[in-house]
Computed example of a mutant assay.
Amino acid sequence: MHISELQKATERGEFSMRFVAADGEVVRIPRCVCTSYHSKGRTMNVKSCESGEIRKVVRITIIEINDEEVYL
């Protein structure tokens, strides 16, 4: 999926994702929901359904949504 389709793919409720953290580690969140999407910014906040942790993710670091590769 192209990164421009990211908001549409994540607004439908629960999804899984993988992204590259600032330290280079690939992080996988198996079940999460988007709590906010900053369309003029470059981030989105996601909440893990398992732990309740909320993470701010830079959108261009997302490499996979629901087992589908995300590209620029």
Rank of each mutant, 00 (worst) to 15 (best):
M1E: 08
M1T: 07
S4Y: 02
S4F: 03
S4P: 03
L6H: 00
A9W: 04
A9F: 01
T10W: 10
R12Q: 14
R12W: 00
F15P: 01
F15W: 06
S16K: 12
M17E: 02
R18I: 01
V20F: 00
V20I: 15
V20N: 02
A21K: 13
A21S: 14
A22D: 12
D23G: 06
G24P: 04
E25Y: 13
E25K: 14
V27I: 15
R28D: 02
R28C: 04
P30I: 08
R31C: 04
R31S: 08
V33D: 03
T35V: 13
T35A: 10
S36Y: 05
S36R: 12
S36T: 09
S36L: 01
Y37C: 09
Y37D: 11
H38M: 05
H38F: 08
H38N: 14
S39I: 06
S39N: 05
S39T: 05
S39D: 10
G41T: 03
G41V: 02
R42L: 08
R42A: 11
R42F: 09
R42W: 05
R42D: 08
T43D: 03
T43G: 03
M44H: 04
M44N: 04
N45R: 09
V46P: 01
K47T: 03
S48E: 14
C49D: 07
C49P: 01
E50Y: 06
S51W: 11
S51G: 14
G52M: 12
E53R: 03
I54P: 02
I54D: 08
I54R: 04
R55V: 10
R55N: 12
K56V: 15
V57T: 08
V57F: 06
V58W: 12
V58L: 15
V58N: 13
V58G: 07
V58S: 13
V58R: 12
R59C: 10
I60K: 05
I60D: 08
T61I: 03
T61V: 05
I62T: 01
I63T: 02
I63D: 01
I63S: 01
E64M: 13
N66L: 10
D67T: 08
D67E: 09
E69S: 04
V70H: 00
V70C: 03
Y71N: 11
Y71S: 10
L72P: 15
L72D: 13
L72K: 05
